[in-house]
Write a protein that binds this DNA or RNA. Structure first.
Lengths: 336, 336
DNA sequence: ATGTTCTGTCGAACCGATTCGGCGAACCGA
DNA sequence: TCGGTTCGCCGAATCGGTTCGACAGAACAT
């Protein structure tokens, strides 16, 4: 079922079939109808590889995801889903490549085998060799999160520093003087993971600015660690009256530990942070939090499409600073 | 940087470069070294589209996922991750296609544009038109979950019926007489979603076999619905002493409702079911449950690779029936 | 009647790989 | 010394599309 077969059956040349399909040159209505009839009958669709070879583009986007060993957070999952959805809307396919572990063959295939027109890179480190590699090969790319020197690249990101600072200010306005930051895991922080580092810097700055007392701790990304983290906090810093967090996976554990210790939210302890909306809403009581927009992936795809079209244009960035949604988990300092 | 450029610089013909790379014909060591040197210098990699066109295969697998609107469960996520990982090990790439919503253009591109060598289809309905479509086009495919008439197709699946029955028997052995099944959402059951339906049939059968009293309810896939479901259960069927479930997303809500109502597990109520291991382990107390294997995706990929190699071979199936892991959430019937 | 423009179609080149048939040189045994 | 193999390489065809130049015929202006 190639284009030649269609041409023969319709009694025209191969180029005419091509033009009838693409509309790039005029074709008489009569001919177009005849061609279309044959196409419908045989359920013909042009071979993607042949088209890609001739056109020099694949109509495919590469999405580099963290390896399966690191389990994806809900936010990352939302991101992948919205990327795929947005690409589908633009009639683009998405090729997945696990990377960051030892699957570098996959990454190499995707970036230098010209399998894709552009790449979206998630889980960026502040110093990331994959970015360097992409710049070398000249493949258009957009990162989710940004590196230490972000001016030369395209990216979308959440402004963790500002958002965490806003959370601190919100708590300070309510009268809180001693606040804890529950960050992501120690390994992530150590490896230069942007969100974790920027959350910390936003936290320390805001704490200093308001003259408060701040405690920051790392917490692995699971419920058990969350429970342990809350226990440790109440043990070592019993005077803390509010918590700020970006660690979604720890929330169920925190919830459990709170109930076990009979700590009432927000009467005894206020909780807020930067979280995917559904995590905030699933907590009891629902968490006052900056909701990370789920359409980040959509914006990344738009940016990438734009970059593919005009690679010489100066790189653009999108930094999201969503407003804090007031729910029920923050309140005035408890009286003792 | 095409193969002609390499040939010119190495002073050989294009075919020699190709043979040096593939090893399909003898090439002298001297020539091979010279070619390799040029390739390394220019960082050359063959154009994937050209190769796919000539070879008639793309070295790419298609993975059809549910659309983003339905949020993926953790089990599905594990599955996607393990598919991508297994494909990468076999030097295959994975093309994502959201389908089941209204993005059928994407599905059509993937299956009939010869963009992939084979397809993995997840979230199968008992009657699924996508399966019919794939059979029409003759693209090799493997489904995760199976349709009403499963003999003609390749699939991997979890034997929900048997596993849920085993859970019931386990509880019956402990003395429980009145057991509830917390199923997935009513819509899923209504739409003919296999796991939900087979869980139900396994449940009813085992209940009848042991002469027990069974209650089955549907529960939306989120924490709030989980809490509501447990409340309803304790309200309408206060004599229930054990719960069996396959609804992971409802667990945090169930946990919360239990703690609020001061119901002790397993002293007042036993809980078990078929769940991804990490959900079972994150519960307090850890749930006795049949752990759904995380490597399902690996098996699906293996099966698909096999099917691509020998499409005429009779279709194979893999039905998983993992043993129940005894943890701490089931115990003898409470004395009143 | 003649020259010009416009329409619709065709043929051929091309994208970048793989692969088959063939060919010269080296090597073998008789 | 000569016929037959083997080895290593080359040239050309091929996969299935897209696109450019050419061209016949109709429409139109002069």
């Amino acid at each position: 079922m190639n284009i030649g077969e269609i041409a023969r059956r319709a009694g025209v040349s191969r180029s005419t079939v091509s033009y009838a399909l693409s509309g790039k040159r005029a074709v008489s209505d009569e001919t177009r109808r005849r061609v279309q009839a044959v196409i419908d009958e045989l359920d013909y669709r042009p071979n993607a590889a042949a088209r890609a070879l001739k056109e020099g583009r694949t109509r495919t986007l590469g999405l580099v995801i963290p390896p399966a060993s690191l389990r994806l957070t809900d936010m990352q999952l939302d991101f992948v889903a919205s990327v795929v959805e947005a690409a589908a809307r633009a009639d683009l396919d998405v090729l997945l490549s696990p990377s960051g572990g030892d699957h570098d063959r996959s990454f190499e295939r995707v970036v230098s085998g010209r399998r894709v027109d552009g790449v979206i890179l998630m889980e960026i480190r502040l110093e990331d060799e994959r970015v360097t590699r992409l710049q070398q090969t000249g493949v258009p790319f957009v990162t989710i999160g940004h590196t230490a020197n972000p001016d030369g690249t395209c990216w979308v990101d959440v402004d963790y520093a500002t958002l965490i600072a806003r959370c601190v200010h919100h708590l300070a306005d309510l009268g809180h003087r001693r606040i804890a930051l529950v960050n992501r895991s120690a390994e992530l922080v150590a490896s230069g993971y942007g969100p974790a580092q920027r959350a910390l810097s936003g936290f320390t700055e805001a704490i200093a600015q308001r003259g408060l007392t701040g405690v920051d701790l790392c917490c692995a990304d699971d419920a058990t660690a969350g429970a342990a983290c809350l226990a440790q906090l109440r043990d070592e810093h019993p005077d803390i009256t509010a918590i700020v967090t970006i660690n979604e996976a720890a929330l169920p554990g925190i919830q459990r530990a709170l109930e076990q210790a009979r700590v009432a939210v927000p009467e005894d302890l206020s909780i807020t942070g930067v979280l995917a909306r559904h995590w905030a809403e699933d907590f009891r009581p629902p968490l006052t939090a900056a909701d990370v927009p789920t359409e980040m992936g959509t914006y990344a795809v738009d940016l990438l499409i734009e970059r593919i079209a005009t690679p010489e244009a100066p790189p653009r960035h999108l930094l999201f600073t969503p407003a804090i949604s007031l729910r029920a988990s923050t309140g005035p300092t408890p009286r003792r």
